[in-house]
Design a protein around this nucleic acid. Structure first.
Length: 213
DNA sequence: AGCCAGGCTACCG
DNA sequence: CGGTAGCATGGC
């Protein structure tokens, strides 16, 4: 099956998702976010907090950060690690994530001209930051910087396997998606978000259908 | 009561 | 290279 077909099937079964959520709000068909540096930082912080964690738990952590005026890189850098860990408790792995948040904040402080770099260079530099792997790096590039790069996650791998595609690894799947879809950040934005929407319903269905004693 | 979430690092064979 | 323990909370 062609990737376009898969995309259209997802669009038929789900509404446009309006990623990345800002302050808990989705904005379907509006791809103009982030509108400012503060929103960009919120996206990046969320991208780290959501590593192997449900978005519900991340939202609570983001609210705590917002309430404590910690939802920005400059504030994160000044904040004691233990305070930070307490705020993001609900997102799990809070000690690790407290370190990661400080790492990424420090990275962007040391790289004020990040936006001027080529996409390849940006990705390479992000991957060298402790706590930033391929999915988080690509999420940051796609959703915080509107760069045309496709994000692969656990759901994407499941979807590919389900359709019998031969691509297995992160890079293989990413390359195929980018080869077969327009090189447009809006397309990659919606496609990834739709796959997550699909993945969530998939999980719900599995639960309902599960045999219980 | 488990299993799992919008992963990553470190370490193993 | 591929595989996996550890990290940790909260929803269902």
């Amino acid at each position: 099956m062609h990737m376009q077909t898969l995309f259209k099937m997802l669009l038929k079964n789900h509404h446009p998702q309006g990623w990345w959520p800002i302050a808990g709000k989705y904005h379907p068909r509006d791809y103009s976010c982030p509108r400012n540096q503060q929103q960009r930082e919120e996206i990046i912080i969320g991208a780290i907090l959501t590593q192997n964690t449900s978005w519900k738990n991340v939202e609570k952590a983001l609210e705590q950060l917002r309430k404590n005026k910690l939802l920005s890189f400059s504030a994160l850098l000044k904040c004691p690690k233990s305070t930070l860990a307490t705020c993001i408790r609900s997102s799990g792995y809070f000690n690790q994530k407290a370190i990661k948040l400080k790492e990424i904040a420090s990275f962007f402080k040391r790289n004020p001209y990040f936006r001027m770099l080529s996409l390849e260079k940006q990705r390479e530099k992000l991957l060298h930051v402790h706590g930033i792997g391929p999915e988080t790096a690509d999420s940051i590039l796609l959703y915080a910087f509107r760069r045309p790069i496709f994000v692969v996650d656990a759901y994407t791998k499941r979807l590919f396997a389900l359709h019998g595609f031969k691509e297995k690894t992160y890079d293989e799947i990413q390359q195929r998606c980018m080869r077969e879809l327009p090189h447009d950040f809006k397309v990659y934005n919606e496609f990834h978000a739709l796959i997550v929407a699909w993945g969530k319903t998939q999980r719900l269905n599995n639960r309902k259908g599960r045999k219980r004693v």
